[in-house]
Structure formats: C-alpha cells, structure tokens
Amino acid sequence: MDLTWMAWTLPTAVFFITIATLLAGMTVWDLAQPSVARKGFLPIATTRGDRFFIGLLSGAWLHLAWLGLTDLPLWYPLAALVVWMIVLLRWG
C-alpha cells in the first residue's frame, strides 16, 4: 500500500504510534478493570477515559502555549505533560 501521499515523517509517525499505543493500553485497562465515574480534584465527575482525554487536550494546548510564548525546547512541556497526566489519572 502506497502511503507517500500522506507525507509521513519519523516524528509524526512516532507521535501517532504513541497515541495509538496509549489508546490501546487504555482500552485493555478498561476491559480488564472497567472504570467508574468519580470525583477528584477536577470540578466534574470523570471516568478514566475522560481524564485521559482532558490530559491529552490540555497537553496539546500546553505545547501550543509554549511555542507561542517562549523559545525554549518542547521537552519541558512534554515532561510537564507526563507528570500532569499521571496526576490527573490518579487524583483528577
């Protein structure tokens, strides 16, 4: 199958493989141990999937804000996102 029209690059491939792996992992986790909506420090009751979605979306905006406001490398917001995602999934 010719996928050159999709103009793949290594970084974007790694990005999508990571997202797909995380989604697959979350699916398996949910099948093994179904998530129940609960209230953490977020103002709304959320399931594990909700918190994962909030984490990804806030991560995207964090990276965009970083790009718009600073000239520092993107490794910092990426590290912050990993920490934020763990905090969110555990206590969110």
Partner: peptide, 12 residues
C-alpha cells in the same frame, strides 16, 4: 486518516 495527513503536512 485525513487528520493524520494534516498533522504530517504541518511539520513540513
């Protein structure tokens, strides 16, 4: 698939 293509385009 179109969204993935857009992401690929956005870095090139």
């Amino acid at each position: 698939i179109p969204l993935m293509t857009v992401v690929n385009y956005s870095v090139q």
